[in-house]
Design a protein around this nucleic acid. Structure first.
Lengths: 140, 140
DNA sequence: TATTATCCTATGGGATTAGTAGGGTTTGCA
DNA sequence: TGCAAACCCTACTAATCCCATAGGATAATA
């Protein structure tokens, strides 16, 4: 299940992407528009800034704004930063791989092989949907 | 991420499905073959029995065995019993639907619409892979 | 300098996970 | 009948994660 953190993060990115122009937007504005706890959102936006997807401006007239590349960034990237691995099992994760202790041979593990299929299908969506695609999505 | 419970449950089902015949198998045998804590596995198999996928025989020579229909049952069914919803967000779950408090309009929510796609893709795999298919899987 | 807004660390309650403990109950067999 | 094998069931716990809040530090603007 998607954590609230990820869900809120994606909603905030959406909110920024839907705006005309790219002026900084205060946390409070986003949190009220999207019904998100302000303090919690604060930490989420901070994470996204550190990951290089958002810029921030302090002081009066400050706030968060999208960086240029962010609109073209696939949802998969945000997902990995906010939620972690996309794979359902560490042994099929591309970016967070870990071997299972209980499993002597991955190639012959049914769970492993099925979860590779699930991962590839999910990835095909999350990697091929950019933030721009994502906001168009809302009208379909 | 898949819980150990689900992973162990699927492995145990696999183990039973790969056997010739359908004699009861003791928990201990499965737990040793698959490197699973015996007591934990015990509770998992109990869940699967109550859900109607396994039979059990008590006393000497007893153990767990597959019911007839179980080989034809899709992995999605086991998943729902062991792990819960397949959807990543309750608002796109078919079997465990819940409305989001923060979201005024699902149809115009980007997250909602994206997660429907992910759900449909995942479902297409989990619903179309039966336990029989699943064990063949290991050799591909 | 005063105000505004992000930055950052720490903390805490609640839920979930992955077991563990310790019996109880039923069955088969000698 | 009696014993041991094997499942049945409840309760508990340690660890971890999630969601959120608090409060001050820092930086930018006017």
């Amino acid at each position: 299940m998607l954590s609230r953190k990820t869900k809120y993060g994606l909603k905030a990115l959406c909110f920024l992407a839907r705006r005309e122009g790219n002026d900084p937007v205060q946390i409070e504005v986003i949190s009220k528009a999207e019904n998100i706890s302000q303090k919690f959102l604060e930490s989420i936006l901070l994470t996204l800034r550190k990951a290089g997807y958002l810029g921030a401006k302090k002081g009066k007239g400050g706030g968060y704004y999208l960086l240029d590349k962010t609109r073209k960034t696939p949802i998969a990237a945000f997902y990995r930063v906010l939620e972690g691995p996309i794979a359902m099992v560490p042994c099929v994760s591309l970016n967070f791989y870990e071997k299972c202790e209980d499993c002597p041979d991955e190639d012959h593990c049914s769970v492993h092989n099925l979860m590779i299929q699930v991962r590839d299908n999910t990835l095909s969506i999350l990697e091929n949907t950019s933030l721009s695609d994502f906001i168009d999505n809302q009208m379909t």
